[in-house]
Deep mutational scan, measured.
Amino acid sequence: MEVRTIKVFTTVDNINLHTQVVDMSMTYGQQFGPTYLDGADVTKIKPHNSHEGKTFYVLPNDDTLRVEAFEYYHTTDPSFLGRYMSALNHTKKWKYPQVNGLTSIKWADNNCYLATALLTLQQIELKFNPPALQDAYYRARAGEAANFCALILAYCNKTVGELGDVRETMSYLFQHANLDSCKRVLNVVCKTCGQQQTTLKGVEAVMYMGTLSYEQFKKGVQIPCTCGKQATKYLVQQESPFVMMSAPPAQYELKHGTFTCASEYTGNYQCGHYKHITSKETLYCIDGALLTKSSEYKGPITDVFYKENSYTTTIK
């Protein structure tokens, strides 16, 4: 009895394709271990004539594949690729409408935090270190965002349907971005203890939790000093293409032309909904596939993004 075979390709990165001759009487799992086709788990399936010449994702289970996976995804987590594939199996079914010149995501599976993050990423200057993220990001900007969303979920250790947080998501993504040249110098002034300067680099240099107003941050924000008295913390120097200011959701007025974009969060910790506000020729609110415009805006804002380049204080 002759062994019926077909020729397929296996890959971990969709760049390096490895030619395989597979036995049609055995499952993919018996031949390769966990195997995925377009995100779908085909591990328990036997090869079919229609699979001839198709590319299958496999887990990096030998040295060659491990090197290829690390170079593309910059992670050695053995569960990463499987999590990416199972997320992709959902995100490829989502709709990605162009809204006001940006790629958004039609609401499904509690994905409003991903839509808000995706919209924000198209408006701030950011370059990702893992080629996987950078490639998928370019495709997302062009309207094909399924891979990018699935990668975000995998890097953030999230599953489809789980509630997510924009600030946490951005923080994970910033860790995989090139923020080497970003720098922030802060000064804390206390009447009792004097003053202390701190220099922050990388992710810490672009994120701040405690106030939404970048102007206020430049002037000074009140913080408790270690001595128990009130101290003032203010920005001395900022070198970065953008800054992200966050605070627990509270009524906040966004003035046209003073910011790049913002995240609105309605609801409580267990259950809520994100919308995205962007400042173009007027203010726009993007909620999944829905767009509304207004000249002014007041609502429960939790993150505001500002364009920056270089700032030095005039406070002496």
Rank of each mutant, 00 (worst) to 15 (best):
N110T: 04
K93A: 10
Q197D: 07
N147Y: 11
L121Y: 03
G228N: 04
I6G: 05
L65R: 09
E71W: 06
M24V: 10
A205Q: 02
K44V: 14
L17T: 00
I223H: 12
H18M: 07
D23V: 12
Q197Y: 08
G164L: 02
M207Q: 08
S263H: 15
A87W: 02
F32G: 08
V99R: 07
H273L: 01
H48G: 12
S246A: 01
D303H: 00
V189Q: 08
R83P: 04
N309R: 11
M245I: 01
T43W: 03
L173D: 01
Y57S: 08
A154Q: 02
T27E: 12
Y274F: 07
A177W: 02
L121E: 02
A142C: 14
L291G: 03
P224E: 14
L235F: 06
T76D: 10
V42I: 14
R167G: 05
N157R: 07
D77G: 03
S263N: 12
G194K: 05
D303Y: 08
Y28G: 08
Y84L: 04
Q175E: 08
V99I: 14
Q98N: 11
I105C: 00
S79D: 15
P241Q: 06
Y269F: 11
N309G: 10
P224L: 13
Y269P: 11
F9D: 09
Q230D: 12
F80A: 03
Y84G: 06
I315P: 15
D135A: 11
A136N: 10
S104C: 01
L102R: 03
N110R: 02
V243D: 03
Y252P: 01
D62W: 14
E162T: 07
F9A: 10
D38R: 11
A117W: 02
Q270W: 07
K106V: 11
A154F: 03
Y284M: 10
V58H: 06
Y72K: 11
D135N: 10
E52W: 10
N178Y: 04
E204S: 09
D109C: 08
E308V: 10
M24I: 13
K46G: 10
T75N: 09
Y284E: 10
M209R: 11
D180W: 04
I105T: 07
D41Y: 08
K183A: 05
L118C: 07
Q270V: 12
Q222T: 10
L119C: 09
D41V: 07
G164F: 04
L186D: 03
L119Y: 02
E296Y: 15
A136K: 03
P241R: 07
N157D: 07
D109V: 11
Y297P: 03
C285G: 04
C227M: 00
L163M: 11
K44W: 09
G194W: 02
T55D: 09
V203Q: 07
I301C: 00
S295Q: 11
R139H: 11
M170V: 06
E52C: 12
A177C: 14
Y297Q: 00
R66F: 12
Y311R: 00
V188P: 01
T313L: 14
K307I: 11
Q31C: 12
D13S: 09
K54D: 11
V203I: 08
S86D: 13
Q230P: 12
T312A: 09
K183C: 10
K44M: 12
Y214Q: 01
Q123A: 07
H176P: 03
I286A: 04
V99S: 07
K127E: 14
I45H: 11
N187H: 07
I124A: 02
K280Y: 08
Q270M: 12
L81F: 12
Y113S: 02
H176S: 05
G143E: 04
K316W: 15
G228D: 01
K298L: 10
G82W: 11
V185F: 03
Q175W: 04
P34S: 10
Q251H: 14
Q196E: 10
S79K: 14
V189H: 09
P130W: 04
Q230F: 14
E52L: 12
Y311I: 09
T232A: 04
N187W: 04
